[in-house]
Design a protein around this nucleic acid. Structure first.
Lengths: 352, 352
DNA sequence: TTGTATGCGTTATCAC
DNA sequence: GTGATAACGCATACAA
């Protein structure tokens, strides 16, 4: 602990309270309260006096006290990995939609160094009534317990048996389209780089395997461990480069990973798409740049965000709170990193 | 407003309180409070009972009530534009450092659609004792008033006459290095694309003008309106492409803008760096990718974040709170988008 | 239109 | 060790 004198020493500038405002305006506390919550019961005259007094004191209602006194907080918590640009895009939409619905938004960041659970508990401790979690990787058990404490919406995965809303993009469709596209171009030796422990990764991985099977390419199925960042892609590329024969196509867990793969290959003199085709996932803003020109799967981030917010709010605002589920169809965006498979000799193309 | 029946209807699962825990454990509220704040004065036996009871009820201390009852909140607010990846990187560092210092962090996002002032007030209303603002674009007057209400640290710009800490990178040095580098490569017709209304942009713009003057290139000084995103870069590129003669080099306001410029040029068949050299700012993760390979200025984001947090905390924790200032020297990273200036005929190279 | 009493969940200052 | 009791700043039902 710190020296207890702190409080007084450091805050000679104590926050002004409603009482201060009331005194300065020569009215009662109640009046100030009424006026600040825009309720009838105060004359325009006093209303003006009070607001002026508040302004002069730089008075600001204290959320903590409001929260305590009111039943509801009308606050929504959002868990996000700030470093994932795909999520960052959704945040803006969430803010706008929340404001329209009359809710405040609190952000909490998860990340490699920060415990996700702590981030969620922090949100809860601030009395968030609703929670929107982007790609949470906590175990389902825990998420179920969270669902008991707040209106929960999970973006990017489902949680069995939880009273939670689910919003996600149909990863299986996106992956299937990618495989389809590659197969149509003559590819058979198609490698998938996994996205790590996130639930979306699992889904994409399984979808990849299933799609390969459908095309009778069981023998070529190959999943590489990875993550959703450039470094993982580069690592995977360097391993692949060390092997006898390169695959003809690589499907990365997301765009950032794909960029890493491209980088590793390009550095090694492997030409894309002549030697190897690459497919990403997310259609991040960079994918469309000419220098990148990445074939990838587009998810409608704004729509995902809007639906997530709508679910959360409706669960809070309407009595019959049925948890909703929403799956948005993604779309393959074909660009310059995919082309016809390079010719491979029969044995070279064989699985290892 | 909503139907007032909500509160009871929607929260049959009322949050458990300390009283609930106390009752369940058969002790008084005070005891529970003591135990939860890790203070002496409870036997190990009762401590265990209480903790178990709390666990069974999924009890969680209510921050709002804590905040109200305690003098201090030990909470820091961070204002950030989530879409700027450069800032996103710093967030992680801030969280870690804050935790080490015993502070909680609240995030609030500003952005094109969201009012920065609202975001700051939201932080304040949650009783944040310290505020770290990344590249705020509010007027100085307002920021000065904020400095009166919380320990303020501003990253990216200075605020005259404010009791605020300032942490920034020496943009003038970075820009000067860029100009130096280009001039050494024989460039004279160097255009700068402005970053918009942010303070950093102004600083970079002025630094560009000053550096050009130092090299007696006053006649070539040319500032393009722009912003810190790809679209602005592309727009600038298309305008430049419409003119008679292209400049030999473009210095973008930041990396994202530089990417846009590159994209516009590449699409039009202009070769980089043979026809035009490009320099960015920030050294974002993508700049180092082979396909981009952007010459840019690196800022030590982690260090910036650490200093910002240290300043804020020390202002809060120590009595003699002298606002600090810290300027970190950036470093030009030379990559593949800059090369010797293409030969220009005397009149072609002349300013417009 | 205005003022008064009470409670929200916690901490802190006292007595027991 | 343990247990009452008064704040903290605000909202709200109620009385004036």
């Amino acid at each position: 602990m710190h020296n207890s004198a702190d409080a007084s020493e450091l805050s000679p500038r104590r926050r002004p309270t409603m009482a201060d405002v009331a005194e300065r305006a020569g009215v009662s506390r109640t009046l100030v309260s009424l006026i600040f919550s825009d309720k009838p019961g105060a004359s325009d005259d006093t209303r003006g006096r009070v607001l002026r007094a508040a302004d002069e004191l730089a008075y600001q209602p204290d959320r903590a006290a409001q929260l305590l006194a009111r039943g509801r907080s009308r606050t929504l918590g959002v868990l996000t990995d700030v470093k994932q640009t795909f999520q960052a895009e959704m945040i803006g939409t969430v803010y706008d939609a929340a404001e329209a619905a009359g809710y405040e938004v609190l952000l909490s960041a998860s990340g490699p160094t920060r415990d996700e659970r702590k981030a969620i508990e922090a949100l809860l401790s601030h009395r968030c009534e609703g929670l929107i979690l982007f790609n949470p990787l906590s175990e389902s058990d825990y998420l179920r317990s969270v669902a008991l404490r707040a209106a929960l919406t999970i973006v990017g995965r489902g949680v069995p048996d939880a009273t939670a809303n689910t919003v996600r993009s149909a990863d299986a469709t996106g992956i299937a389209q990618s495989v389809e596209h590659l197969v149509a171009l003559g590819h058979r030796d198609i490698v998938h780089i996994d996205g790590g422990e996130h639930a979306v990764s699992t889904e994409r991985r399984l979808a990849y395997v299933a799609a390969m099977r459908r095309h009778r390419l069981d023998a070529f199925v190959r999943v590489f461990p990875g993550a959703h960042d450039e470094a993982a892609g580069m690592a995977a590329a360097s391993v692949l480069l060390g092997e006898d024969v390169l695959p003809t196509a690589v499907m990365a867990g997301n765009d950032r990973c794909a960029l890493g793969v491209m980088d590793g290959f390009t550095k090694a003199g492997v030409s894309i798409p002549d030697d190897v085709s690459i497919v990403g996932y997310d259609d991040s803003p960079l994918s469309s740049l000419t220098r990148i020109d990445l074939t990838t799967v587009r998810q409608d981030s704004a729509e995902l965000a809007r639906r997530a917010l709508a679910f959360t709010v409706s669960m809070l605002d309407t009595a019959d709170a049925e948890p909703g589920e929403c799956v948005i169809e993604p779309e393959l965006v074909i660009r310059g990193t995919t082309a016809a498979a390079r010719p491979t000799s029969p044995e070279a193309g064989a699985p290892r």
